[in-house]
Amino acid sequence: MRILVVGAGATGGAFGSLLQEAGRDVTYLVRESRAKRLRRDGLRFVSPGNDRTHQVRTVVAGETAEPFDLVLVTVKAAALEGAIADLRHYVGSGTFLLPFLNGMAHVERLDQEFPGQVLGGLVKIVATLDGDTVRQMTGLTTLTVGALDGAGVPEGVIEALDVPGIDLTVSRDVVGALWEKWAFIAAAGVITCLFRGPIGKIIDAGGLPKIIDAINELEAVAEEAGHPVSGQAHAQSLALLTEPGSAFTSSLYRDLTAGRPTEGEHILGDLAGRARHLGVPTPLLDLTLIQLRANRPTHG
Rank of each mutant, 00 (worst) to 15 (best):
F15M: 15
G16S: 04
V26I: 15
V30W: 02
V30E: 04
R31F: 09
E32N: 06
R39E: 12
G49A: 06
A61S: 15
D69L: 09
L70D: 09
T74Y: 07
L80N: 05
G82P: 10
L87G: 03
G92Q: 05
T95S: 11
T95D: 11
N102E: 11
N102H: 09
M104Y: 04
H106Q: 08
V107P: 04
R109D: 05
E113G: 01
F114W: 13
L119H: 06
R135T: 14
V145Y: 04
V153W: 09
P154E: 13
E159T: 14
D162R: 15
V163T: 11
P164F: 01
D167R: 14
L168I: 08
V170F: 04
V175G: 01
K181V: 13
A183N: 03
F184K: 07
A188P: 02
V190D: 05
L194Y: 09
R196M: 02
G197D: 03
G197S: 01
G200R: 08
I203P: 02
G207F: 03
G207W: 03
K210C: 00
A214K: 01
A225E: 12
V229P: 03
A235D: 11
A247G: 06
F248N: 14
L252N: 04
G259M: 05
T262M: 10
E265D: 13
G273P: 07
H277Y: 11
H277A: 15
P283G: 08
L285N: 02
T298Y: 04
G300A: 13
